[in-house]
């Protein structure tokens, strides 16, 4: 999964990127105002009801929530243990709904459309001599390269598993959690190095095609 965008011809794909972002903003504000569990459950259900526009395999797209679960559990406990479980549930529902909605916009919007939609927001920067393309392109490139980074992490993970004896029941016996911790500790530095290298490559590719601000008109 190197590319987040899912090809499709649904109404959500066809809706202009600018509208999608505005609606996302308004709905997110609205969701912040909802303060009861039934209301938020309804909002979450409505969000989930939108996902089938992605077509076959839409259920897999919900996995975006998976890496979030430790945070969600912590939020639930922080509110719940002092006695307010419903507040914890409220926050968790709110987060899930907003993440899923934003993800849906990412999945159905191409990056060039996204770039064209957010670039005008930065137009005032032109008054002080900064190209509005710079921040817009930076935002779009984050969306672009997060899945690439995830791919790098996966490759490192595989390299680790291929050579870690405990993965094959050999070596010293360790608890599962200790193994995970050890792996994370070992893989963090190479992951950072590869992330830096990736950013160098992207910068070079960008420079080779005229830089973030683009070519200025021919004299």
């Amino acid at each position: 999964m190197i590319c987040l965008y899912v090809e499709g011809r649904s109404w959500l794909h066809r809706l202009a990127a600018g509208w999608k972002l505005i609606v996302l903003l308004l709905v997110s504000i609205l969701i912040m105002q909802l303060r009861s569990v039934p209301q938020l459950s309804l909002a979450l259900a409505a969000t989930l009801a939108l996902y089938p526009v992605l077509g076959e395999g839409w259920i897999r797209r919900l996995q975006v929530l998976r890496p979030l679960w430790p945070i969600l559990v912590i939020i639930l406990l922080v509110h719940g243990l002092p006695g307010d479980w419903s507040l914890g549930l409220l926050v968790v529902l709110r987060l899930c709904t907003m993440v899923l909605l934003a993800h849906l916009v990412t999945l159905t919007t191409r990056l060039d459309a996204m770039l064209a939609a957010i670039e005008p927001l930065f137009r005032p920067l032109a008054w002080i001599g900064i190209s509005p393309r710079l921040p817009a392109l930076a935002m779009v490139l984050v969306i672009r390269f997060v899945p690439v980074l995830a791919g790098i992490r996966e490759a490192l993970d595989e390299a680790w598993r291929a050579r870690d004896p405990s993965e094959r029941g050999l070596g010293r016996r360790r608890t599962r959690w200790y193994g995970k911790w050890r792996k994370m500790r070992a893989l963090l530095p190479p992951l950072l190095i590869q992330a830096l290298r990736l950013s160098d490559q992207v910068a070079e590719a960008l420079t080779a095609r005229g830089g973030a601000a683009g070519f200025r008109p021919e004299p």
């Binding site: 990056l111 070079e204 960008l206 080779a208």
Partner: peptide
């Protein structure tokens, strides 16, 4: 570039 993956700025 030697590696086309290092050249693509946009995914499509």
């Amino acid at each position: 570039f030697q590696n086309p993956d290092h050249q693509a700025i946009f995914p499509i």
